[in-house]
Design a protein around this nucleic acid. Structure first.
Length: 254
DNA sequence: ATGTCACCTGGTAGGTGA
């Protein structure tokens, strides 16, 4: 089983690239972030023509998530039950016996801001709900744009980024607690090239200089850990015309 | 070098978020 996540930064702009990517990689399920589309604008027909069922949950301008799958997803949940949120950030469904939680974590802007406080509340809300979800669905994958670089290996310039957004101790503590529920960072189960990033700022020629962060993650539950065969970042998409600033991440389960 | 991109409002630019 092949699963993928991609922050497309506007599905309206990136739809042709998404269709190409689905055709080339044929994931069994894929989650998208930052679709930036209201539900009436979601390109369900084009995605169906590519062979994928879809569940979506969006809003104007910001955020928006989707779950695509070859087999119809069941028990679909939008956002975090028990955590009131105006923003469309999470979509969950069961595909082929695996509970798939696709999430667009808050960016958080900068420590000390209202957006950072919201990020902390959101992270706690996610963890509290996910603990229950794991208890009822032991085979679970949490994947998406986490907007947190797990540690200094995941940052091109850890000194410059120390204490900055995506790299603060508070964010990393929350991520550790999420992992502490019984999850594993699939990418780090394998030897990986150094300087592996999933996001490069559009500014500063960051991709050409390979100045990025690894903030798009796939966490698998203990029950699935033994079946993980590979986890890779497809940085080739960053060379597309009009690329997203994020690259897709893939995991292969036996 | 904040050297970009996407999308909004309300206009033919400026603001916001990332």
């Amino acid at each position: 089983m092949k699963l993928a996540t991609w922050n497309v930064n506007s599905l309206a702009v990136r739809l042709p690239q998404l269709l190409d990517w689905l055709n080339a990689h044929q994931p069994d399920a894929m989650v998208l972030q930052e679709t930036k589309l209201t539900d009436d604008k979601f390109p369900a027909a084009e995605i169906a023509a590519a062979g994928y069922k879809a569940q979506w949950f969006g809003q104007k301008t910001y955020n928006g998530v989707a779950l695509l799958s070859k087999a119809e997803a069941s028990d679909v949940v939008r956002n975090i039950p028990g955590f009131a949120d105006d923003l469309a950030r999470v979509i969950t469904g069961s595909v082929d016996g695996v509970r798939i939680v696709g999430a667009y974590f808050p960016n958080g802007q900068a420590p000390g801001t209202d957006k950072f406080d919201y990020k902390m509340r959101w992270l706690r809300g996610l963890r509290e709900w996910l603990a229950d979800e794991l208890a009822s669905h032991p085979k679970l994958v949490l994947l998406g744009d986490f907007n947190i670089a797990p540690d200094d290996r995941d940052v091109y310039d850890p000194v410059a980024w120390a204490g900055q957004i995506h790299c603060t101790d508070e964010e990393r503590d929350h991520l550790k607690k999420l992992i502490g529920l019984g999850l594993v960072d699939a990418f780090r189960m394998f030897d990986q090239p150094p300087k592996s990033w999933s996001w490069w700022d559009y500014r500063n020629l960051a991709f050409r200089r390979n100045q990025g962060l690894r903030i798009d993650l796939i966490l698998v539950s203990e029950a699935l850990k033994g079946s993980v065969r590979a986890c890779t970042i497809d940085r080739a998409t960053r060379k597309n015309e009009r690329p997203s600033d994020h690259a897709p991440v893939l995991v292969e389960l036996a």
